[in-house]
Amino acid sequence: MITVSTTDGVGLIELDRPDRRNALDVATCRELVDASARVRADGARAVVVAGTGPAFCSGADFGEVYGEDFLEALYAALHAVADLPMPVIAAVHGPAIGAGLQLALACDLRVAAPEAVFALPTARLGLAVDPWTIERLVQIAGGGTARSLLLACATVDAGTAHARGLADTLGDREAAFAMAADVATMAPLTLAYNKRVANAFGRGGHTEERDVRALQSAFEDCWNAEDIAEGRTARAEKRPPRFQGR
């Protein structure tokens, strides 16, 4: 139900349930956790999350959404994707609805094809998403878009999503892979640090002192890494840098 591969530093996690429009069931959510661990173990420096068939992910599989195991499996999957240290790019084509939008939000960047649509119609179904999802939505797309999706159950097309920040760029699957290939050439320690800080300070409320100290330590690690010398040498030699993540 999920295919996983890593080529030239770019990992691919692909939902492969086209007959169910890539809806998430318990098994698929658990496979997402395993897939996240695999691309990390394979040394991916950027990851693309995509879907086969006509949809990115049409949401939760309603054959299982009301079962007692579904919520636990879903949020384990979302956090496994969100917690990857490298940038994760969602290649969104067709619907990203409900849990599908949540999966797109768990990614760091979103490339939306012309046929992409985003919606979170929980209020039409008597369901709810967790506070982390809503906080992430507000952080990425802003309060106005979040309220439109949550309170009016609006459907947002690709152009509107891009204009409001929900999609970072417009393009097809190939464009998502091109972005990932470019990201994969960048300094891994810097990217991991940037992502960690953006996630920490993007949250509302107070950041714990111990977390600030850990982020400061990660900042110092970037400046003490071998990659900083490689970046300087490559610039002097007028060539692309070859970062090693150390």
Rank of each mutant, 00 (worst) to 15 (best):
81 V>P: 07
120 L>C: 10
178 A>Q: 15
226 E>T: 13
131 P>A: 13
147 R>C: 09
12 L>T: 08
3 T>P: 00
155 T>S: 07
151 L>S: 03
59 G>V: 08
42 D>S: 11
230 E>C: 01
216 Q>V: 01
139 Q>H: 13
131 P>D: 09
99 A>S: 10
198 A>H: 03
131 P>F: 02
152 A>I: 03
106 A>E: 04
159 G>Q: 11
42 D>K: 07
169 T>A: 13
157 D>V: 07
24 L>R: 01
83 D>K: 11
153 C>G: 11
192 A>G: 05
15 L>V: 07
37 A>C: 05
150 L>E: 02
181 A>T: 15
160 T>K: 12
93 H>Q: 09
192 A>D: 04
181 A>F: 05
217 S>F: 07
191 L>C: 08
152 A>T: 12
147 R>L: 06
75 Y>N: 12
6 T>A: 12
14 E>W: 09
131 P>N: 10
102 Q>W: 04
98 G>V: 08
106 A>H: 06
7 T>L: 04
62 F>P: 00
213 R>W: 12
83 D>S: 14
63 G>A: 14
243 F>G: 04
205 G>E: 00
222 C>R: 02
162 H>W: 10
19 D>H: 09
5 S>A: 13
86 M>G: 09
158 A>P: 08
143 G>A: 03
170 L>Y: 02
162 H>N: 13
88 V>W: 01
34 D>V: 00
3 T>V: 11
132 W>A: 15
188 P>Y: 03
189 L>R: 15
223 W>V: 05
68 E>H: 13
190 T>M: 12
217 S>G: 09
215 L>D: 05
145 T>C: 10
175 A>M: 06
172 D>L: 00
178 A>Y: 10
158 A>T: 10
85 P>E: 06
60 A>E: 13
122 T>Q: 15
53 G>W: 00
164 R>M: 08
78 L>F: 07
26 V>T: 14
4 V>F: 08
234 A>Y: 05
12 L>M: 11
61 D>F: 15
112 A>D: 05
80 A>E: 02
83 D>Q: 12
148 S>M: 11
169 T>F: 06
182 D>G: 14
45 R>T: 01
14 E>P: 00
16 D>T: 09
3 T>D: 12
107 C>F: 03
120 L>E: 07
72 E>M: 02
160 T>E: 14
204 G>Y: 04
21 R>E: 13
244 Q>H: 09
164 R>S: 15
23 A>C: 09
96 A>I: 07
173 R>F: 01
206 H>P: 11
150 L>D: 00
246 R>M: 05
98 G>M: 09
71 L>E: 15
158 A>F: 10
227 D>L: 10
197 V>I: 11
48 V>K: 01
119 A>M: 09
150 L>P: 03
197 V>N: 13
206 H>V: 14
30 R>T: 06
141 A>R: 03
117 V>M: 13
186 M>K: 13
6 T>D: 02
199 N>P: 00
106 A>F: 02
73 A>R: 05
227 D>P: 00
62 F>W: 14
133 T>N: 05
220 E>P: 00
219 F>L: 15
91 A>W: 02
156 V>C: 11
231 G>P: 00
90 A>G: 08
3 T>H: 12
227 D>G: 12
186 M>R: 15
134 I>C: 14
202 G>H: 01
111 V>E: 03
